[in-house]
């Protein structure tokens, strides 16, 4: 406790230490500063290097790079990334069960035939020229969004509603893409529009039921036609059946009639042949055969010369 330390006494010792430490510290500091110049460019990224604000280099290859610390600024952009803009809706949750909200004030638009429809669109784009995108436009995405919205509405307004709803979706998509690319090129955005998709085109709620009814009317039309065809498929075969039946019946009649005639004639021919052998005898015999056959069942009155009738009692009957 009573030991007094004289600073001066240890000074040479400390001095020696400081003498070696100071350059070391400075060297380490300088090294640290130089080390902050390292930066990485990921694959799919590109970067521009600005020295005192002046563009000196564009890095298009990925890897570890170095720039002058404190002086050079590096602006990086993911050029391979497919970016998208949504119009008329917003994705709230991405993934398997994605959720969307509709933005009706954005989606509701006039068509060429002055109808109103909701059009939900996705514009996909990629930054292809990082220098243009960073140096020539102030807020690239905002500019693109405004241009895209104008183009979508412009093109939809140029087509009748049914074209957008059903008939010509792909044509409209292509037209929007081309028009938008043209504008974007004029603005020197350095952006390529890779795709424009009409995600969902639907009529406003106020008239939705009328549109649905048109769809069901179309179904009805098909149903009516199907029913009629069913009827035709029933009626025509039945008629063919009837026809076949009628013809078969006629054929049967014909055969029957001919067979009958042949039969009748055969009997007659037999009798005729017999008759020719002895005409008088056969004649009488035939006559008597008939009388024999018919008289027993009859009441016969004979009219005499005076006009009186005499009841003739059948012999056969009496005998029976």
């Amino acid at each position: 406790m009573d030991r007094v330390i004289n600073i001066r006494e240890i000074r040479p010792d400390v001095e020696a230490k400081i003498k070696t430490l100071v350059p070391l510290v400075l060297a380490v500091l300088a090294a640290l500063i130089l080390a902050t110049g390292f930066y990485t460019v990921d694959s799919g990224e590109e970067a521009v290097v600005l020295r005192f604000g002046r563009h000196v280099d564009t890095v298009v290859t990925s890897g570890l790079k170095w720039r002058i610390p404190l002086i050079d600024k590096v602006w990086k952009i993911k050029v391979s990334e497919l970016r998208r803009l949504e119009f008329g809706f917003r994705t709230v949750k991405e993934g398997a069960n994605a959720q969307y909200v509709e933005v009706p004030q954005e989606s509701l638009m006039l068509t060429g035939d002055e109808n109103l429809i909701n059009v939900e669109t996705i514009v996909q784009y990629r930054i292809v020229d990082i220098e243009k995108y960073l140096f020539l436009i102030d807020k690239g995405e905002e500019a693109l969004r405004a241009a895209a919205e104008a183009t979508i509405r412009r093109v939809i307004a140029n087509h009748p509603m049914d074209a957008a709803l059903t008939e010509n979706k792909s044509g409209i998509q292509q037209e929007i893409r081309d028009d938008l690319q043209y504008i974007v090129d004029r603005y020197n955005l350095g952006v390529m529009i890779t795709a424009v998709q009409l995600q969902d085109v639907y009529p406003p709620d106020e008239v939705d039921d009328a549109f649905k009814d048109v769809a069901s009317a179309r179904e009805d039309r098909a149903a009516f036609i199907n029913q009629a065809e069913t009827y035709a498929n029933e009626v025509i075969p039945r008629a063919r059946g009837n026809a076949a039946e009628a013809i078969n019946k006629a054929e049967a009649f014909k055969e029957q009639r001919i067979a009958q005639a042949r039969g009748d004639v055969a009997l007659f021919n037999e009798i005729l042949a017999e008759y020719r052998l002895g005409p008088e005898v056969t004649r009488t015999r035939l006559y008597l055969e008939v009388l024999e056959e018919i008289l027993p069942g009859m009441e016969v009155y004979i009219l005499d010369e005076q006009g009186n009738t005499i009841k003739w009692l059948p012999i056969g009957g009496g005998m029976q």
Binding site: V290, E299, Y301, L303
Partner: peptide, 14 residues
């Protein structure tokens, strides 16, 4: 044979 069946009354001239 066909026409003059049973129970027919026949009146004929002598």
């Amino acid at each position: 044979r066909k026409a003059l069946q049973d129970n027919t009354t026949l009146v004929i001239d002598a």
